[in-house]
């Protein structure tokens, strides 16, 4: 399982201009802070060592204060903080959506759910879950909403975090400089499975991204054999399709309760990051969802072994 999570997701390894601007501000603040911390710590420890009572008796000089000193250590921090505030306002502008940053941006709608992410590409009739494909070098303009409680979209290497609030759409920008998979997660406590609401951003070259988008826009493969045909029948006939949509299956979910499963085989993980997307894992997920992700809303339909095989074959577009 660790191969899914072999890369860092660090604020300190930014992979976008926006994350870099924030990283820059972090390091400025960090070094100022270190100077202050070292100064105060050294002073306290120096006092403890140098002015320790060695038992010679008597009182030290009873100094009550010094106005000049007091004013100095009020004004100096104030000046440092004014500088920090200016940098703060500048960085806020640089990493937020504006006519400049979103001029050539790709728009993607993000809908947060308990406990998975829905990504809608308005330009391409493509809906996917938990994995966001983006072209490198281009600003991605995300519009975040929530279907239930408050969630938070956070991919540290690509930019800031932003809450997904029901009834209050938010926008944010991210970008990736280099192709690769960037890890993220829901950062606002959202109930039972908050821990398993992971995000994977797959950054691709513009050509590869376009090819991916075109493939995703195609309907799910029609059944190529009897097993897959049974699988599709089960998907439509059991309750699966009341929560999940598969383009080309003939059934559309009335509500987005569960992820769109069109081209599920394209995704790296199942259950918003808990397990790798392999036929065996999918089979176990369908057989006993609670053993994989306790508390999730995916029901246990008590499927038979043959039913499981058929569903896996259809969902994974495999023989």
């Amino acid at each position: 399982m660790d191969r899914l999570y072999s890369t860092v997701a660090s604020v300190l390894s930014p992979a976008s201009p926006y994350a870099r601007d924030i990283g820059h501000l972090f390091w400025i603040t960090f070094w100022i802070s270190m100077v202050i911390l070292l100064f105060v710590s050294a002073f306290v420890i120096f006092n403890l060592v140098r002015f320790r009572d060695r038992g010679e008796g008597g009182l030290p000089p009873q100094t009550h204060g010094n106005t000049v000193v007091e004013v100095t250590w009020t004004v100096v921090p104030l000046v440092i903080l004014i500088v920090l505030f200016v940098l703060t306002v500048q960085t806020m502008a640089a990493v937020s959506p504006s006519t400049k940053t979103t001029a050539n941006a790709l728009n993607v709608d993000v809908v947060a759910h308990q406990w998975w992410w829905e990504f809608r590409y308005p330009d391409g009739d493509v809906v996917t879950a938990n994995e966001l494909h983006i072209p490198v070098g281009r600003t991605i303009h995300l519009t975040l909403t929530s279907a239930d409680v408050i969630h938070d979209f956070w991919v540290p290497e690509l930019g800031r975090k932003m809450d997904a609030v029901p009834g209050h759409p938010n926008t944010m920008i991210i970008q990736a400089d280099r192709p690769g998979t960037y890890l993220g997660t829901c950062a606002e406590y959202c109930g039972t499975d908050h821990a398993w609401m992971r995000i994977r951003v797959v950054a691709q070259t513009p050509d590869a991204y376009q090819a991916w988008l075109t493939a995703q826009a195609q309907p799910h493969a029609q059944p190529a054999n009897a097993k897959q045909a049974i699988g599709r029948g089960l998907f439509v006939g059991l309750t699966c399709s009341s929560c999940h949509t598969i383009k080309g299956s003939g059934a559309t979910a009335s509500k987005d309760v569960g992820p769109d499963l069109t081209h599920l085989a394209d995704r790296d993980t199942l259950a918003a990051g808990v397990i790798a997307n392999t036929p065996e894992n999918l089979r176990q997920w369908l057989a006993d969802p609670n053993s994989i992700k306790p508390g999730s809303y995916m029901p246990d339909l008590h499927l038979s072994s043959q039913q499981l095989d058929a569903l896996v074959a259809y969902l994974e577009e495999q023989p």
């Binding site: 972090f26 202050i36 911390l37 105060v40 710590s41 920090l84 505030f85 703060t88 806020m92 975090k161």
Partner: peptide, 25 residues
């Protein structure tokens, strides 16, 4: 004194809005 200074300076980091956007939660 020393530990509170550490908590205080990280607190100031949270006052710098973009740092809060990365570090909060």
């Amino acid at each position: 004194i020393i530990q509170f200074v550490i908590g205080g300076i990280t607190g100031t980091m949270f006052a710098a809005v973009p740092l809060d956007w990365q570090l909060t939660d």
